[in-house]
């Protein structure tokens, strides 16, 4: 019953998201034709010529018909043709998706591990040099705009030290799948993943530190100590397990933040993922492309939250009874 309710909730969220995905690009000022052709061409185009271009992409239809086509396309797997690329939206999205998954997957894993570990350690030695040092450092890095962090990394590791390549996702010269290619992909991940993970690490660290501090002040911790449990055991078995829930929630919510961060990071590093595709789509008012990408992002966040919801009962027995 709990699971059915959760699934119905997410279905409703998805329906609202689909409508917003359709409406948002259209609410923004400007139309695809404003970007499809240069001004000197638009200058002499007749209304008939303009209508012809709009017809090519189905943008001449009434808005409700377009919405109907979009919804039907979502369920039939046809999201139309990108105005700016002239290619089916799914083809473009699926070309880009693996790169973003790779980037975000690593960023999420690293930020989750590092943020949790540092946060727990800061709470463990609260008020000490490690706590103060990690807090100051992470607040500084976490407050920095991701693009600035990215540029600093490029300046230091690509321009000055020459250790890492400054752009792209894979070496052009290598054969895909070869060792050289895999190595090239790995080395090109380092800076974008670092830039993306740093900001997220700060969020998780602060949550983990706070959750651990709260847990350490609870009665059950006092009780455990009173029973004679060792400090390590109290920390690991009693405090940390209870602090896991907010950390886990923060990590899953972080997926949405990472999508936002990817817009900037992928553009700066010329990384061919979904983030840079959104930037491109917004710049070109490419409705079909944006609908497709937003749909994917929405699904990603919804699925992540669904997994989070479904995961709570596993982490916390109290959630099973809720």
């Amino acid at each position: 019953m709990v699971y059915l309710r959760i699934i119905l909730q997410y279905a409703a969220v998805l329906a609202v998201a689909l409508s917003l995905n359709f409406l948002l690009p259209r609410i923004a000022p400007g139309e695809p034709i404003d970007f499809l052709l240069p001004e000197d061409v638009l200058a002499e185009m007749s209304p008939e010529d303009e209508a012809r271009v709009m017809r090519e992409f189905g943008l001449d239809k009434p808005i409700l018909v377009q919405f109907g086509d979009y919804v039907a396309g979502v369920f039939s797997g046809d999201l139309g043709t990108s105005v700016s690329y002239g290619m089916p939206v799914w083809d473009i999205v699926f070309d880009r998706l693996p790169w973003t998954l790779l980037l975000m997957g690593w960023a999420l894993a690293i930020s989750a591990f590092l943020g949790s570990a540092l946060g727990v350690m800061a709470a463990r030695w609260r008020g000490g040099a490690f706590d103060v040092g990690s807090l100051v450092a992470i607040i500084f890095v976490g407050s920095a705009p991701p693009f600035w962090v990215a540029m600093l990394l490029i300046t230091l590791f690509a321009a000055n030290l020459g250790w890492l390549p400054s752009f792209g996702a894979a070496p052009l010269a290598a054969i895909p799948g070869s060792w050289e290619w895999i190595k090239g992909v790995g080395i090109r991940l380092i800076m974008p993943v670092t830039a993306l993970a740093l900001v997220q690490t700060a969020n998780i660290l602060l949550t983990a530190r706070s959750a651990m501090q709260i847990a350490m002040g609870q009665d059950y911790v006092t009780f455990a100590r009173a029973k004679g449990a060792g400090e390590g055991r109290v920390f690991r078995k009693h405090a940390f397990r209870n602090a896991l829930l907010p950390i886990y929630t923060n990590v899953m919510i972080g997926i949405g933040n990472l999508v936002g961060g990817a817009l900037v990071i992928e553009t700066v590093f010329a990384y061919p993922g979904i983030g840079s595709l959104i930037v491109e789509g917004v710049g070109a008012r490419d409705y079909n492309l944006l609908q497709g990408v937003f749909l994917l992002a929405t699904l990603g966040v919804v699925i992540a939250n669904l997994i989070a919801d479904l995961g709570y009962p596993l982490l916390d027995p109290r959630a099973r009874r809720a």
Binding site: M151, I154, T155, A158, A159, G162, P165, S166, F167, G168, L172, T267, V268, F269, A270, S276
Partner: peptide
């Protein structure tokens, strides 16, 4: 001849300087 898309100007000029 390979053409690679680099939209950010700083990244493009860094790539040129580093020989990428």
């Amino acid at each position: 001849l390979n053409l690679v898309m680099i939209k950010d100007p700083q990244t493009m000029f860094t790539a040129l300087k580093t020989g990428e």
